[in-house]
Each structure stands twice: as structure tokens, then as C-alpha cells.
Amino acid sequence: MMAYMNPGPHYSVNALALSGPSVDLMHQAVPYPSAPRKQRRERTTFTRSQLEELEALFAKTQYPDVYAREEVALKINLPESRVQVWFKNRRAKCRQQRQQQKQQQQPPGGQAKARPAKRKAGTSPRPSTDVCPDPLGISDSYSPPLPGPSGSPTTAVATVSIWSPASESPLPEAQRAGLVASGPSLTSAPYAMTYAPASAFCSSPSAYGSPSSYFSGLDPYLSPMVPQLGGPALSPLSGPSVGPSLAQSPTSLSGQSYGAYSPVDSLEFKDPTGTWKFTYNPMDPLDYKDQSAWKFQIL
């Protein structure tokens, strides 16, 4: 009977010793046993002879290597770790002494450095960015050149030099007046198309007034536009458009034309069986010896 009264063996659950049927240790109110408190290391007290050895090595170098620390530790009968900690504390003490010396050398008012006064946003004049500046400075420094007289040679050079070769001289006033084509001369031969040399188009003023001019072949195509416009036809070669000034309004060009419109200028042929003959000019830059190549039959 006494065997049943004795408590059973101890069981360990999660490293906790349980005594038989008792489960009081598993209750929430019972805390787990805490780790033992780490003991504080005792402070090391250095003797005068030990301090002399350490100070002598510190005077040589503030960062001794492990071999120098072990050698000193053997002399003063201390572990190497204590020597390492002593050098660490000695360097910190040396830095603190240097900072105190710097503070003593500075004057009393030198510690508080005078800061520059901050400028207020409204006091300083700042350039306004509302208006974009002129990058080319046209509004201040540029002045347009004065327009020359209508009959000045410089204007003629600016007008005619675009179309004339570089080897030719500017046309005088008398020749510029001949550039304007007359109405009857352009409409006299509506079906004849003559190819003149390129030099005649640039230099010869008579080429624009003769039936064999460069633009005589364009007349049949330009004249039928007159009834559609409801007024006189516009002429690209009329009046002052080739003269001194090219800047004319469309209203000033509306009254200039080749001449009176005639039914002869239409595109319809009077004789459907007729042929169109292209007159060959020996001055043509295209060297075609066979003139029969310039004739064709309209079917």
C-alpha cells in the first residue's frame, strides 16, 4: 500500500520538471525561470610600474599592434585584453584634452560664430520673369535699313540677281523696263511654242516681248482663266512685280493683265486636223540634229 502513496517519478516537459499528477507549474501565473544575472567585471587597478610601461608604449604609438600589447601584458602581468581596453580609454582621454585646449585658446566670443544676415524675399530687387527677354536684342539694338529709291541700282540687283547668272552684270533701268511683257505680243502666236536658250531668258530683255519668248507657250493655258476669275487675268510678269519692288498687295496686282481676252486664246483648236509644230532653235543647249523629232501629229 505504501508504494502507491509515494509520488511517481519526475517528468520533464519543455525542460520543466513536473512532479506526478501536479500540474501547477503549467499555470499561467507561474513564470518561467529567468537567466542568472551576469556579474559585473571588477575594475582593474594599475600600479605605478604598470602605468609607466603603458605610458611609455603610448608615447611611441597610440595604436599598438597585438604583438606589442602581448609583450607589455607579459611585463606588467596583466591579460592582453586589459591592455587593449586601457589604450582605448587613453585615446579617448587624449582627444578630450585636445578639445579642452582648443576651447581655452579661443576667445569668449569666438564660440558663437556670427551668422550672415538672411536676406528677406521682398527687399532684394530681383529681375521680373513675367516678360520673356528678347534673345536677339531686336527691340533695343536692331534698326531696319532704310528703303532705297525705287530706281536705285541696288534694288535692281536684289531683284534680278536671283534669276540671272553670276557672270552677267546687273540690268540697267532701261533693260528692266523691257522685262514687262506686252499683251499683244504674248497673244499673237498662241499655238507656236519656241524653246529659246537659257541665257536669253536671263539677259535678253527682248525675249519677253517677242513671239518667240519663253513664256509665249504658256499663254494658251493662262488666258482661259479670265472668265472664271470674273475680271482681268493676273500676270506674273506684269508691271512692277518684276520691277523695283516685289512687295505689292494682291489688290494692286488684280488690275494688271496680259491684255484683252480673245477667243483665239482658248485651248480649242480651230482646225482639228492641224498639227502643233515646235520651232527648233539652233541655240538650244539640247543638241538634236534631227528636226523631225520636234513634229508630232495630233490624233
Rank of each mutant, 00 (worst) to 15 (best):
Pro125Met: 06
Ala3Glu: 00
Tyr288Gln: 04
Thr123Ala: 03
Ala17Cys: 08
Tyr195His: 00
Gly122Cys: 07
His10Glu: 00
Ala181Glu: 09
Pro64Ile: 14
Gly148Met: 05
Ser124Gly: 11
Thr251Glu: 02
Pro220Asn: 09
Val30Lys: 04
Cys132Arg: 08
Tyr11Arg: 03
Ser167Asn: 06
Tyr4Trp: 11
Asp284Ser: 13
Ala29Phe: 11
Ala59Phe: 08
Gly274Gln: 01
Tyr142Pro: 11
Leu18Glu: 00
Leu16Ala: 00
Val83Ser: 12
Arg115Gln: 02
Thr154Tyr: 13
Gln50Ile: 15
Pro236Val: 14
Asn89His: 15
Thr279Asp: 00
Arg82Lys: 04
Pro127Ala: 11
Glu42Leu: 11
Leu54Met: 08
Gln104Asn: 08
Pro79Trp: 13
Ser182Asp: 01
Ala247Glu: 05
Thr154Ser: 07
Lys102Asp: 03
Pro282Ile: 15
Pro153Glu: 03
Tyr32Arg: 10
Ser266Gln: 05
Gly8Trp: 09
Ser257Arg: 11
Asn77Ile: 12
Ala207Ser: 06
Ala192Arg: 09
Tyr4Asn: 00
Lys38His: 05
Gln175Asp: 02
Gln228Ser: 05
Ser252Phe: 11
Arg82Ala: 14
Pro232Met: 11
Pro149His: 11
Ser182Asn: 04
Val13Ile: 09
Phe58Val: 12
Asp287Gln: 12
Pro220Met: 15
Tyr67Trp: 09
Pro135Ala: 02
Asp24Lys: 14
Pro240Gly: 01
Pro244Val: 10
Ser213Gly: 04
Ala3Tyr: 14
Ala35Ser: 07
Ala121Ser: 07
Arg82Trp: 15
Tyr142Leu: 09
Ala68Phe: 08
Ser150Tyr: 11
Ala260Pro: 05
Thr155Ala: 03
Ala189Ile: 13
Ser49Gly: 11
Met225Ser: 01
Lys270Leu: 14
Ile162Ala: 00
Ala181Asp: 01
Gly274Asn: 01
Ala114Thr: 02
Leu18Ala: 00
Leu57Lys: 11
Arg69Val: 14
Ala3Arg: 03
Pro224Cys: 12
Ala117Leu: 07
Ala177Lys: 10
Pro172Trp: 12
Arg95Gly: 13
Ser216Tyr: 15
Pro170Thr: 07
Ala200Gln: 03
Pro244Ile: 12
Gln28Asp: 04
Asn281Tyr: 14
Ser161Tyr: 12
Phe46Asn: 13
Asp140Gly: 02
Ala121His: 05
Ala68Glu: 08
Gln50Phe: 15
Gln105Ser: 06
Pro170Arg: 04
Thr273Ile: 06
Ala92Asp: 15
Leu57Asn: 14
Ser257Ala: 09
Glu71Ile: 12
Cys94Tyr: 06
Gln104His: 08
Gly255Lys: 10
Ile76Pro: 10
Pro127Phe: 11
Val226Gln: 00
Ser164Leu: 14
Val13Gln: 00
Ser238Pro: 01
Ala200Lys: 08
Ala15Gln: 01
Gln175His: 11
